[in-house]
Computed example of a mutant assay.
Amino acid sequence: MKIAIIVFPGSNCDVDLFEALHSVCGATAQYVSYQEKSLAGFDAVMIPGGFSYGDYLRCGAIARFSNIMPEVVRFAAAGKPVLGICNGFQILTEAGLLPGALKRNNGLKFICKTTALTVENNETPFTNQYQAKEKIYLPIAHADGSYYAQKDVLAQLEAKHQVVFRYADENPNGSLNDIAGIINETGNVLGMMPHPERAVEALLGNVDGLRVFTALLAGNGYQKEAIR
Rank of each mutant, 00 (worst) to 15 (best):
T186G: 03
L102W: 07
Q150V: 07
G107V: 13
D208Y: 13
A202L: 15
V7A: 01
L154N: 04
N220D: 08
G88E: 12
N122T: 03
L210I: 06
P9D: 00
Q131C: 12
Y130E: 04
Y147I: 11
K2T: 12
I183E: 00
R104L: 11
R104G: 02
G96T: 06
V24S: 12
T28G: 14
T186S: 14
A76F: 05
G60H: 02
P9Q: 07
E123D: 13
I136H: 00
S66Y: 04
F75A: 08
N128T: 12
A40N: 11
Q35R: 14
K160A: 15
L83V: 07
G219Q: 11
Y147M: 07
T186D: 08
V15A: 15
T127D: 03
L154V: 08
A40T: 12
F213P: 11
A61M: 04
L83S: 05
G96M: 09
E201G: 04
E158V: 13
I6V: 15
D144R: 03
A95W: 04
G221R: 14
E197T: 03
E185Y: 11
L176S: 10
V200C: 13
S38W: 03
V45P: 05
F51T: 01
E201Y: 13
K135E: 14
D152W: 09
A27N: 05
E197S: 06
V24R: 15
N171C: 01
